[in-house]
Nucleic acid binder design. Structure first.
Lengths: 144, 144
DNA sequence: GTAGATGCAAACGGTTTGCGACAAT
DNA sequence: ATTGTCGCAAACCGTTTGCATCTAC
């Protein structure tokens, strides 16, 4: 996950103290290429800094979301996942066989959404498109 | 909410006993034009049949989902909501000012999703598009 | 009569919070 | 020194489950 600025700068800019738990949590996020949930994040953080409480993970994530640094997503399974908010908006494929989350973007879909919302008399505040997929298997006829 | 068949028939067809709680739960669902969550459903059921436990609500909903009679949705707030599964697929607007859920359908968006999934080497299993909206207010400059 | 369904209460899993201790500024 | 942050444990909320009882078939 890529942040717009380095960790110390992000904290300073948002009036957050640069504490050890925060450094580790943000570093782990920065080093993650997937979308870990809080419990998985806690596991990874604990490998580096065993004392960090899961409450601190949640508080830090909530804080970073509040500051607009992270975006929260909930992909059906009840657990929240986070990603950097400074990226361009995108949607997600969720590979139901592996749990992997893959990002994609379609300007055409974005545009259609705007159009449909307008037709219904709405302004879009945000949206979420999740496509649950499995790897394409040509000629596949039954589940295997 | 409209079911494809009457309640007795639905139960019989799926090997479910036609019990009093089930009759009431399904009747309340049939009479609902919105998408109540389990707790709200329990509240409505309790007005008619005060003895029904919330566990029975959950069990009945899970059973009906399993039998393909209902579809489960989770709109961000953590609570599951249900709708009849025999309708044509559609997506949802969620009015963030009122909590109302409005259904819509766009064949064009459906088609684009298929196309993009194919480009990524995926088969779509299901998908979920939720557009969080507020009523359009022309010239609106600040929140009110 | 029997298996399935129910009510109750306790358990669950993810998340949040109150509190006193602690440490970044 | 001040105030934000921390770890801990308990609370929370929606949901699920074990168990004894009940009831539709």
């Amino acid at each position: 996950m890529k942040f717009s600025k380095d960790i110390a700068t992000l904290c300073k800019e948002h009036g957050l103290r640069l504490t050890e738990p925060r450094k580790v949590i943000m570093q782990v996020l920065a080093d993650s290429s997937d979308h870990p949930d809080a419990v998985e994040l806690h596991r990874r953080v604990s490998e580096i800094s065993p004392g960090v409480a899961i409450a601190t993970i949640y508080r830090t994530l909530a804080l970073l979301e509040e500051k607009g640094v992270l975006e929260k997503h909930t992909f059906g399974d009840g657990r929240a996942r986070f990603e950097s908010a400074d990226q361009e908006h995108h949607d997600h494929f969720i590979n139901i066989e592996t749990g992997d989350v893959i990002e994609f973007r379609s300007d055409e879909i974005e545009r259609l959404q705007e159009e449909i919302a307008r037709q219904h008399g709405f302004d879009i505040v945000s949206h979420k498109l999740e496509i649950y997929v499995r790897p394409a298997k040509k000629g596949r006829r039954r589940a295997g």
